[in-house]
Design a protein around this nucleic acid. Sequence first.
DNA 1: TATAATCCCTATCGTTATAGTAGAGTATAC
DNA 2: GTATACTCTACTATAACGATAGGGATTATA
Lengths: 155, 155
Amino acid sequence: MEVRKSGVKITYKGDYALKTILDLTLHYGNGVVAIHDLAKRLDIPVKFLEQILLDLKKGGFVASKRGKIGGYHLLRPPAKIKLGEVVRFVDGPVEPIACASLEAAYKGCRDAHRCLFKDIWLEVSKAIADIIDDVTFEDLANKIKAKRGEIAYQI
Amino acid sequence: MEVRKSGVKITYKGDYALKTILDLTLHYGNGVVAIHDLAKRLDIPVKFLEQILLDLKKGGFVASKRGKIGGYHLLRPPAKIKLGEVVRFVDGPVEPIACASLEAAYKGCRDAHRCLFKDIWLEVSKAIADIIDDVTFEDLANKIKAKRGEIAYQI
DNA sequence: TATAATCCCTATCGTTATAGTAGAGTATAC
DNA sequence: GTATACTCTACTATAACGATAGGGATTATA
């Protein structure tokens, strides 16, 4: 039995993480943002968001300031944070089945060279990577700024 | 809370279903194949495969013959069975998050027109569909036939 | 017609992931 | 020194996954 995690699924945790990073992108350079504010704006349970932010901190995406007037800010400029990076960090490998890993190192599928389907799943993995690794959070923020004036934007 | 199933994941059930349809493709036109033979060739637990075949029957992919010398055969010619069809039938919608449905009818995401990420997940869904809806089981069988002689093929 | 081989159907089960909730602790501004 | 924030660990309810179990119904053939 294969135990390696796989599946291209954006969980609530992943979705929340992306929205959080995007919100922090919009506040990049303006100090920290408190969990409470993020949770309220993005409609995320506070205690759940706490865990997510701790993870993102371990992942090197955000840094925090403790105590009163504490909060979070991005550790890297939004132009250097790719969508795919965050997705993979929070929700795991982006591949439809464990045998279709883009990491060449993975040797789990014994019959890899014989399995027709593997080629297809590899193609799928690659197509997805091409999309999510081509978008940075700066790109996303720019889209929002372009939209401002058209409609009131809300994540 | 969203309850709709989503996620681009090929489960064991899905993987088994694909391999089963492929095996039946290789025997298309030569009568029925017994569950036992399929299970042995494809290394699938017999009782699990029973369930999968019953599902595939409900889905109109296969038909069965009961009694002694019974078994399964494809209901449609392999050229008319797309990979994506089987995947969607067995493992559900192929989209990374419920809001990114290709079915225009789905209205679950209230802020759809405002959410930047939705566009990306829709793009991902479309890229996957372009791949898996372009391959038929006849195509796969032809690849196998082309490989025969090179190496002993085994699913 | 007996029997063996085969498909048909429902129920159950152990494990893991998901989406939280709870509560106590630590740091800092004022 | 206290209110406001982040930190960390533990717990829980639900569902999906990957089977397994145990019959019942059908049919070819001896």
